[in-house]
Simulated scan of single mutants.
Amino acid sequence: MPDDLQTEAETRHAAKMAKKKAARDRIMAGKTGEKGLVIVHTGAGKGKSSAGFGMILRCIAHEMPCAVVQFIKGAWETGERRILTERFPDLCQFHAMGEGFTWETQDRARDIAAAQAGWDKAKEVIRDPAIRMVLLDEVNIALRYGYLDAAEVLAFLSAEKPPLTHVVLTGRGAPETLIEAADLVTEMSLVKHPFRAGIKGQPGVEY
Rank of each mutant, 00 (worst) to 15 (best):
E176R: 14
L154Q: 08
R12G: 01
H41K: 02
G30V: 00
G201D: 10
A197Q: 14
A67D: 03
E160F: 08
T42D: 01
G30P: 08
G204K: 10
E34N: 11
T177I: 07
P129V: 10
G171P: 11
L143D: 05
G79H: 00
I199Q: 08
H13L: 08
V205K: 14
M97Q: 14
V38A: 06
I60G: 05
Q116K: 04
Q93W: 04
V38T: 15
W103E: 06
E104Y: 13
T102N: 12
G173A: 13
Q106A: 12
W76N: 09
A113D: 14
K123E: 15
A114L: 10
I199K: 08
G146P: 08
T177V: 08
T85C: 02
H62E: 11
K21E: 13
A122S: 06
A67C: 02
L37F: 11
G201V: 01
R127T: 09
Q116A: 11
G79Y: 00
T186L: 08
E10Q: 14
L37D: 02
P194N: 02
V167Y: 04
E8H: 10
T105S: 14
T32C: 04
V168Y: 12
K16V: 15
N140Q: 07
V40A: 05
A15N: 11
L178R: 12
R196S: 11
H193K: 06
G54D: 06
Q116G: 01
L135K: 07
P162N: 07
V69K: 02
A182M: 09
L184I: 11
R82C: 00
K48G: 02
A14R: 03
M1G: 11
R144P: 00
L84A: 01
M97G: 02
V167C: 13
E152C: 07
G33E: 15
A114T: 03
P129R: 13
R24A: 12
H62P: 01
A9N: 15
K46S: 03
T85P: 01
D3P: 03
G118Y: 11
I83A: 02
G47T: 00
V139L: 10
I72S: 01
Y145F: 11
I60Q: 05
G198S: 01
K192Q: 12
S189A: 12
R110G: 02
E77N: 10
Q116N: 03
T165I: 08
H13Y: 10
K192V: 06
D4R: 08
L178Q: 09
Q106K: 15
K21S: 13
M28K: 13
G52R: 03
E187W: 05
D3G: 10
V191T: 10
